[in-house]
Design a protein around this nucleic acid. Structure first.
Lengths: 203, 203
DNA sequence: GAAGAAATCGGACTAGAGTCCGTATCTGTC
DNA sequence: GACAGATACGGACTCTAGTCCGATTTCTTC
């Protein structure tokens, strides 16, 4: 628990100043309570008030620390996401470096589809708590750059920026949540694979 | 104005019973006020309270009539969307019937991209007022069926259902709103065109 | 044109997200 | 170990979407 997001808010970047003891204690309390309550009652049914109460912390503290519900979800996802990031950036092929771009791309997209399904609730909260949240979160930007780079490697003639957004679009939490019943995971995986394959194949 | 959504709530379907006079009057008032206020202050900055007051109508009336903010947006979009629907279903090629599936598909996707940009605010409200709203709205289902059918015509070997969702995904209002600055309209159009072309081209 | 049933009205009410700011706690310094 | 400045706390407050239900209006029938 709480192997998380260093000092300051989940959104901050610089500021190397050491975190105060009470702040650290409260962050841990909040994350623990969130983990527990979300697991017990489901992400959607837990209000920030309940959470603050369960963590024995004021509401102000909760929001100052994590910004909003999305920020809290990001913090909870952090360690799980870090594992996928490590695998992509420096793990073994085909997900990590070494494999040809086309293989890396489909490996990534299907891995992310699995990740999406496994943590759908938290991802949904992190992406939809406020409009456009998905596209501002650091991790999306990372995934986008990765896909963009792979596309650029394989097909320098294409608009990699736009196509990377397009390939990631069907992996948005809101779409997945809404279509989960209609589209089972294996068909989603096959779909994004087909899409990537087609784009890389060219005409 | 208020050439809109017949009797009953925007969500209802059957119920051929005639609408009461006061109900009709109030619907018109609400739609007129919404059109005006949204244009003046922007969709996001107008609260349902303000709107009810401006329309000289109780809040309960507002919500009973349109269900929620998304429903109101759907009603306001109705006539504009109807034009696009008519063009797609029975207009001249390449958007309407007659052209080969591949041409119709790119014609539709680019036309929808234009439509998206032109009515982004209302579409955003209709798609994001509550989670998954986009995928339940009647119009999305229509567009999806259309794309699915075109894909099926051209490439019966593919999973048209999934790929249709994937081709429509980059045209979600939330993504477009967030990436508007990064991706100009012509690149979005080119991107979805490239995507569709690749998928139809096969290996 | 009066009565009764059905549909609609409207504003008080609930609930939840996010803000504000006076107060309490911490940390480095002497 | 006490002081001062910096940092964090917490709960009352605001703002908005959405609900509820007694009062009112409309429509139908005779």
């Amino acid at each position: 628990m709480s192997d998380n997001t260093g000092p300051q808010s989940a959104y901050s970047v610089g500021a190397p100043r050491r975190e105060r003891a009470d702040a650290a204690r409260n962050r841990a309390r909040i994350l623990d309570a969130a983990e527990r309550l979300f697991h017990e009652h489901g992400v959607d049914s837990v209000s920030m008030d309940q959470l603050a109460q369960a963590a024995q912390v004021g509401k102000g503290t909760l929001f100052r620390r994590f910004g909003d519900k999305a920020g809290l979800a990001v913090a909870l996802l952090d360690s799980r996401e870090a594992r996928l990031q490590a695998a992509v950036l420096s793990g073994p092929p085909p997900l990590g470096p070494g494999a040809p771009p086309a293989e890396r791309l489909t490996a990534f997209l299907t891995a992310y589809a699995d990740f999406l399904d496994a943590h759908l609730d938290l991802l949904h909260m992190s992406e939809t708590a406020r409009p456009g949240a998905r596209y501002r979160i650091g991790s999306y930007r990372l995934w986008h750059r990765h896909v963009e780079w792979l596309l650029g490697q394989a097909r320098p003639d294409l608009d990699a920026t736009v196509l990377a957004h397009a390939l990631l679009a069907p992996l948005a939490a809101d779409q997945r949540m809404a279509l989960r019943d209609e589209v089972p995971l294996d068909r989603l995986r096959a779909g994004v694979t087909e899409l990537a394959r087609s784009v890389l194949a060219g005409r």
